[in-house]
Design a protein around this nucleic acid. Structure first.
Lengths: 117, 117
DNA sequence: TTGATCTATTCCGATATGGGCATATATCCT
DNA sequence: AGGATATATGCCCATATCGGAATAGATCAA
């Protein structure tokens, strides 16, 4: 086995910088492929490929409009990522380290008291 | 060029399910490699390799303790991911579409009033 | 119909991956 | 010292990328 397919889930899809930029560009309004390609300064085929990945993991939706295809953000697909990261939020406050130490300190004390009893 | 190196940033590091699980296990307390390997039911070498990736992107820190190495969470490394996803939070509420329309409506009105003045 | 425009797909090459296995390294114990 | 335990690395394979170029489709305009 090699690395998990990029099309497997939102985590993988979003690991690609260009794809993140696409999603940002799609925030607020739909855009056709060429506009995205120009904005990102990458080729049209590459853009289409990225969009396909994003589509397959449900981060984006398409709508035909004449000879263009308007891509729109499907933000709900990012929720799993959001939810997962949120679970770590409390751990990156500087103060947490100290709080953690304090809690451990209390636990040690309690433990000592307990065994003494 | 091939896919971006997994060691390049937190986004890539976290795209791997096993690595996400490692980070979850490290939430709360440090753990030696073997304990992680057992918990994840993967081989020790594989565990070490994942830990290396996590270390290189600053999501984990090591501390020697006898013949063991205790790995600890470095949650701040997840902040970029957190910050990025947060930027989409408002877009996945069902109600957003309607709210958005409403806001745009107000803006149009304000604009009209402005130019009229 | 013919030509122009917009997108998607295919083929190619270079590269990095995740996994298993064997092995090197380091530390502890007797 | 010698053995046991805990980790890290190296090597190999199969695979799945990302990127470019060319091309196939689709749709619109004259």
């Amino acid at each position: 086995m090699a690395r998990a397919a990029t099309t497997s889930d939102a985590f993988n899809a979003v690991a690609e910088p260009q794809r993140r930029r696409i999603l940002v560009l799609l925030r607020g309004r739909e855009r056709p492929v060429n506009e995205l390609a120009r904005a990102l300064r990458i080729t049209q085929p590459r853009t289409s490929k990225h969009l396909r990945v994003l589509r397959e993991v449900g981060l984006v939706r398409v709508r035909e409009s004449g000879q263009q295809r308007l891509y729109g953000l499907e933000a709900r697909g990012l929720q799993p990522v959001h939810d997962w990261v949120i679970g770590f939020e409390q751990y990156w406050n500087e103060s947490f380290d100290r709080l953690n130490e304090y809690v451990k300190h209390l636990q040690r004390k309690e433990h000592a008291d307990g065994s003494r009893r």
